[in-house]
Design a protein around this nucleic acid. Structure first.
Lengths: 265, 265
DNA sequence: CGAGTTCATCTCACTAAATGAGACATAGCC
DNA sequence: GGCTATGTCTCATTTAGTGAGATGAACTCG
């Protein structure tokens, strides 16, 4: 027994195994995963696999696929996930505001939160104009550094924490998104100076452009970020000013509401 | 607080315990749950609780609340939940269509799927006109029988299965929603005759009205339902006809697309 | 600033409970 | 009706999670 139970995967093995099963299932997308997928991705025996599958099914974490022998993620995850996305009640506060913005301006608006070294999309509201975006929907996850919302989040973390995150993500950022740390630093400076972020241009999605502003608590810590995305051609100076102002108003109102809610113990 | 003791939740106890922890956390809403919440809702010892909490945290199922000693649902659930909601790829197919409908008509449109004895909301797209609805968002769950989408789903199940569900839900339906089984049966008949459902009127949400149509696979089995909700005053004969036609067109197109996707092994 | 409270971790002995191997049963498929 | 792959069962083994209580760490409040 290694006295070196370290960072990788500790904790009750049943939990770890269950999680691995869910991950394998998720990896299968809407086709789910088959017994063989599990058996050759995982390291435990078949009876054990079936026992866990059964348990996960009973908990609602998995459901049988229409295709025999395949498994899909269960709706309990959806329900819990909906709750999970409402950290600090932010999502409920943001939803109608994102909708209003999208309807008013026709662009697409997003709510993001930090999740470790990633930014996770808590809510999307698409507008009438089509957009491309790194995240397609709620639950999308990006390494911090990608996208304007990332910048807005990073800018208000401590410098040490920020650097840790960025060096952790550096490789992925350059490899998968063609984004250099130096450029991120520059955009963070822009965020801090002007109060909004524009996102770093990588080689991906060159036709789209965006804006983001942070959602800060009373102590200046970022609770999340609101962002928007649009075709670059739509981003005139006027439009940018209008949209930014709209977002700022909505966020200010949200923060006010939040202060009312957060502290009723 | 329901004395909802899980009578036959078998399976690895660690899984069951983990699930209970998640449920308790979820019950706490955006405030999460505290150690005491766990300790007095659950039946295992404190060290065990902490071990599981730690494990769940490492798996991303939980995260620490800003308030020390409280726990929130983790973003991994959100990510998995987003996947889970895309059963058979239906959600991805539906999202842009719901958006188009909402923008065109200004009402609110929903995608539902069956989840055991419940209907679960996979996607919502609100329109410009305000609505009240039983589900507020993705992940909302209703007992089958409530709402127009339920009717559309129930109508295409086998009679035996349907009756089993309805008798299972009967008590909740009458107690919580003031809906009688006989009325549901009548609406199911309407669905089968006219191809769309209107929902059963209970005493709740009397000012709102809705429509729903099923999404059927090639063998007539319901994959889900698309529904809409609007202020009763907006539901003129003309508007109803228009919206129904819009929904039917979108669903038909979805089903076509789905057939293209479902069977590429 | 120090006492008091609550959160979180550690150690250790114990045994319940998960595991693996392989046989058995069942469902779908040609 | 055979064939293949999915799902279940039994049973001995021992891992791996458990409880009790002590200890350490973090925050609170007087």
């Amino acid at each position: 027994m290694s006295a070196n139970e370290n960072s990788t995967t500790s904790g009750p093995t049943t939990l770890v195994h269950a999680m691995q099963i869910l991950q394998v299932t998720a990896r299968g997308g809407h086709r789910g995963a088959s017994i063989d997928d599990y058996l050759n991705a995982l390291s435990f025996s078949r009876p054990t696999l079936y026992r866990l599958l059964k348990g996960l099914k009973q908990q609602g974490f998995l459901r049988p696929s229409p295709i025999r022998g395949r498994y899909l993620l269960g709706y309990e995850l959806l329900v819990l996930g909906a709750q999970a996305g409402n950290g600090a009640g932010l999502r409920d506060l943001a939803r109608p505001r994102l909708l209003a913005l999208a309807q008013r301006w026709g662009d697409s608006f997003y709510l993001f939160a930090r999740d470790g070294v990633n930014a996770v999309c808590l809510e999307v509201q698409n507008g009438a104009y089509p957009v491309g975006s790194f995240v397609r929907a709620t639950g999308g996850r990006l390494p911090l550094g990608v996208g304007q919302a990332s910048i807005a989040l990073l800018a208000y973390l401590g410098a040490d924490e920020r650097n840790e995150i960025l060096s952790h993500n550096a490789e992925r950022l350059i490899d998968e998104y063609a984004i250099a740390i130096a450029d991120i630093d520059a955009e963070i400076a822009h965020q801090l100076k002007h109060g909004y972020a524009r996102g770093v241009e990588g080689s991906l999605l060159p036709e789209y452009s965006g804006l983001a502003i942070p959602i800060l608590d009373h102590s200046g810590h970022p609770l999340g970020a609101m962002s928007c995305s649009m075709l670059k051609s739509r981003m005139t100076e006027d439009h940018k000013r209008e949209v930014l102002q709209g977002m700022q108003e909505e966020v200010a109102a949200m923060v006010n509401q939040a202060h009312g809610l957060l502290y009723l113990d």
